[in-house]
């Protein structure tokens, strides 16, 4: 028995099966990310005045990642258009660029995550606090490239650009002088927790989307010979998911990196 509406649209919905399915799935995704964005807003407006951290993320890297995702969304559409014009060679080229973009995005995100896991806040026994990146470790201590935190000055930092004014230096610290030390992982504070949750979930979606695109680009492309219209529809559906993932980032970038 042949499955109906795999290529031609149903009369009542005006959509073929896969398009209806992906939009139902994207509706559930909107609820998932919507709940997390709402959590972010509530956590932020509930924070003590001046307590919400600023300038912790690398804006140039976030900008590069935004450009990478915008380019990938353009190549996904061009790949779909190439199939519509029966040009399979161009489709392959455009989707290859999309896959390279997805790998670039994940590479940059991994670098950013690694940067946060090597960024430490160290409280010393004398009450001072050192903030910076771990550059060297030895048996009796470690070296931080950072600065001593002046709590009065830190409270005045309300925007990212004020971080430019802080001078960094190499600070050698003995293990015996440390009261406690903690890196900027998701456990560090509320901001880092919501940052890792939102961007981690988004990165999982990028991986999922890239795997689907890679399958359709590689082994799944054999359908182009047997049922080109259905294959083109599959590319459109994967493109819709990819656009959703990109659109989430377009909201995430200003919310987490700029504001």
């Amino acid at each position: 028995m042949e499955i109906p509406y795999t290529t031609e649209p149903r009369k009542d919905t005006g959509l073929f099966n896969a398009k209806l399915g992906i939009w139902l799935f994207l509706a559930s995704e909107v609820m998932l990310f919507g709940a997390l964005f709402s959590s972010y807003i509530l956590l932020r407006i509930g924070a003590e005045p001046g307590a919400w951290p600023h300038g912790l993320l690398n804006v140039p890297l976030g900008t590069v990642n935004t450009i990478v995702l915008i380019v990938s969304s353009i190549t996904v559409v061009m790949a779909w258009a190439s199939l519509k014009m029966k040009n399979f060679g161009n489709f392959r080229k455009y989707q290859a660029v999309t896959l390279v973009c997805s790998l670039c995005f994940l590479g940059i995100k991994s670098y950013e995550y690694n940067d946060k896991f090597s960024h430490y806040e160290v409280q010393l026994n004398d009450g001072r606090v050192v903030d910076g990146h771990m550059v060297e470790k030895s048996a009796d201590g470690f070296t931080i490239h950072g600065h001593y935190v002046d709590k009065a000055e830190a409270a005045k930092v309300t925007h990212a650009w004020q971080e430019h004014e802080i001078k960094h230096e190499e600070i050698k610290i003995k293990n015996s002088d440390v009261k406690y030390k903690e890196n900027y992982g998701p456990w560090h504070n509320t901001y880092m927790a919501i940052y890792f949750t939102l961007t981690g979930l988004h990165a999982l979606h990028v991986i999922g989307g890239a795997l689907v695109i890679a399958f359709l680009w590689g082994p799944g492309a054999s359908m182009w010979k047997t049922d080109p219209e259905r294959y083109t529809n599959r590319i459109e559906v994967s493109g819709l998911f990819w656009h959703f993932v990109d659109l989430v980032w377009i909201f995430l970038f200003p919310v987490l990196y700029l504001l």
Binding site: K19, W23, T63, T66, I70, S73, V76, V77, W80, E236, G239, L240, H243, F244, D246, L247, I250, F251, F253, P254, L258
Partner: peptide, 21 residues
């Protein structure tokens, strides 16, 4: 909504984001 329409919406959102940036 086709990929064409979603792409249109996405680029509009990107333009607004670029202006905000």
């Amino acid at each position: 909504m086709s990929l064409k329409a979603f792409h249109f919406v996405f680029i509009v959102a990107s333009i607004l984001m670029a202006c905000g940036f």
